[in-house]
């Protein structure tokens, strides 16, 4: 059914630390790798080795420049995937019931055998979290690695979404955001976790931790700096002669 559940027992989701993300795209690759081999249709590529390659991805990393009024600009890497919204518009617009939000953990999924590939769910998503697979003709989206997180065939350490497991910087966290005592909820409370496009009313479960303020460069870089002699002052030898000659001209 494409009616949203009144509430979900848990709110499983991701917390993404924009302070820590180094923009390596490892999460993108590991997501594509895991999800092309497991749950649902593979994530196809078109013209992969040709002039205009493109393909289906469930997770993409943008990079933004933020220029404060004073101080240097900051570069922020910005991974973006499905936010598993509480009020997910992609679920209610679905005409066939293929799109649904699970009551037990709040994960938004697509039943691919019911999907007609009309694309309306992608139209309704402000975050660009859903992509039509050009080979399969069905909508693909982040499953929160539903085939990993409960998978008892995997070692316990691997029972997290592939992107979280892979992140070398520890910028991605997975847990129950509906439980105020969970590690992820505490992290969100401590670091001022935020919603993307809150004005859309989607109530995203995934949260983003804003970058911490950068160290400020004071007038003096180091207290020892004034005591250090300049490394180079006057050129010597040939360059010294050239310098003097050019000045005379």
């Amino acid at each position: 059914m494409t009616q949203l559940p009144q509430s979900t027992e848990r709110k499983m989701g991701l917390v993404i630390d924009l302070d820590t993300c180094v923009g390596c795209h490892a999460c993108v690759i590991s997501c594509k790798g895991w999800n092309t081999e497991n749950y649902g249709a593979p994530l196809s590529d078109q013209d992969a080795y040709g002039a205009n390659p493109s393909g289906t991805f469930l997770n993409r990393v943008h990079s933004y420049e933020v220029q404060p009024d004073d101080g240097p600009a900051q570069l922020i890497h910005f991974p973006k995937s499905c936010l598993h919204c509480e009020d997910a518009p992609c679920v209610t617009v679905c005409p066939t019931g293929a799109s649904y939000k699970r009551v037990e953990d709040g994960i938004v999924l697509v039943n691919e055998s019911d999907c007609i590939g009309c694309g309306l769910c992608a139209w309704s998503c402000p975050y660009g979290a859903r992509e039509m697979d050009m080979a399969e003709g069905v909508m693909k989206k982040c499953t929160l690695c539903v085939d990993r997180i409960y998978n008892e065939n995997l070692p316990e350490v691997d029972r997290v979404p592939s992107c979280v497991r892979t992140c070398p910087a520890g910028a991605r966290h997975f847990g129950d955001l509906g439980d105020p005592d969970s590690d992820v909820s505490k992290l969100v409370a401590e670091r001022g976790g935020m919603d993307l496009m809150p004005e859309m009313g989607t109530k995203p479960v995934n949260k983003y931790l804003p970058p911490r303020p950068k160290d400020q460069v004071e007038d003096q870089i180091d207290i020892l700096a004034p005591l250090l002699a300049p490394v180079a002052d006057e050129p010597k030898g040939f360059l010294g002669w050239l310098d003097k000659t050019l000045e005379k001209l």
Binding site: H62, S63, E131, P210
Partner: peptide, 29 residues
């Protein structure tokens, strides 16, 4: 009221500019 500042949640820190897209080619979106 929706713009790159609310989309990234970074608007309170300064002017946000899309610096680098996720990939060099195009995509479904």
């Amino acid at each position: 009221g929706t713009n790159l500042a609310t989309a990234t949640g970074l608007g309170s820190r300064g002017t946000v500019r899309a610096f680098e897209p996720p990939h060099t080619g195009t995509n479904y979106l």
